Amino acid sequence: MSSLRAAGCVFAEEEARLLLLAAAGPAELSGMVQRRVDGLPLEQVLGWAEFCGLRIAVDPGVFVPRRRTEFLVEQAASLAEPGSVVVDLCCGSGAVGAAVAARLPVELYAADVDPAAVRCARRNIADAGEVFEGDLYRPLPTGLCGRVEVLVVNAPYVPTGEVDLMPPEARLHEPQVALDGGADGLDIQRRVADEAPGWLVPGGHLLIETSRRQAPRTAELFERAGLLSQVVSCDELDGTVVVGTKPGA
């Protein structure tokens, strides 16, 4: 524990407990502690993250699901119904899609551009859905066009100039493609919103996690794409989600 505390781990006692439980023996424990001291995120050292009550596999180099994103899951699940077609875009480890599918039976599809994330997502989503590798909508089956009822997206939204201000755990050990949202942080959100109406059913919903500061601009992107928008926030989880609805239900 002293090594973790000296390295600046705020929750050193809890981290030490988790590492002790995960290690098969003293040699493995020593290696895990050293990786953590070297700055690797705890979740990547353990190989999993707790998210919405699930144990989500997280491999080295894969984006670690944040607790705030549990609010995105809550909002998506509240809008889905049993049998709904749900797409988890920019899925990363597949945490959001897996958590939604754990709450109710849905027809789940997920996609990410990062091969390492796709491998991870396939483990986490398993038989609950299908995971595709490619850029945004491109790898999705064309038969989903006009059929998606809930399109949930945790796209990168950190402006390029602010990535270097992030904690070392994130900027050094998580993929840049999962963090950098372009000059204004909205590059990926813009592309997602522009194409979303073609994939949604009338009355279908697009949900994107964003920051409180950026939420009004994200809502503008939705409106320009022809979606009705609403910003919802959760103080407890420090989460903000913009919900867009395709008119015509």
Score class of each variant (00 low, 15 high):
33 V>F: 03
207 L>W: 04
187 D>R: 12
38 D>I: 02
63 F>W: 12
81 E>D: 10
172 L>Q: 03
166 M>Q: 14
228 L>Y: 06
195 E>M: 11
222 F>E: 01
2 S>Y: 01
177 V>G: 07
101 A>G: 09
155 A>T: 05
58 V>S: 04
208 I>Q: 14
72 L>H: 11
127 D>P: 02
45 V>R: 00
215 A>N: 13
67 R>E: 14
214 Q>L: 15
60 P>F: 03
11 F>L: 14
43 E>V: 06
247 P>G: 11
43 E>K: 06
136 L>P: 09
75 Q>G: 04
91 C>S: 15
227 L>T: 06
50 E>N: 09
80 A>N: 09
39 G>R: 00
12 A>R: 00
248 G>P: 06
25 G>T: 08
102 A>H: 13
18 L>A: 05
133 E>F: 02
175 P>K: 09
238 D>N: 15
89 L>T: 05
2 S>E: 14
35 R>I: 00
179 L>M: 09
74 E>L: 08
78 S>N: 11
88 D>S: 03
232 V>H: 13
70 E>I: 08
21 L>S: 14
80 A>C: 11
170 A>I: 12
178 A>G: 09
137 Y>D: 10
205 H>E: 13
44 Q>S: 01
2 S>Q: 13
215 A>K: 13
18 L>C: 00
23 A>K: 06
62 V>H: 00
211 S>G: 14
230 Q>R: 15
225 A>I: 04
214 Q>I: 09
43 E>F: 05
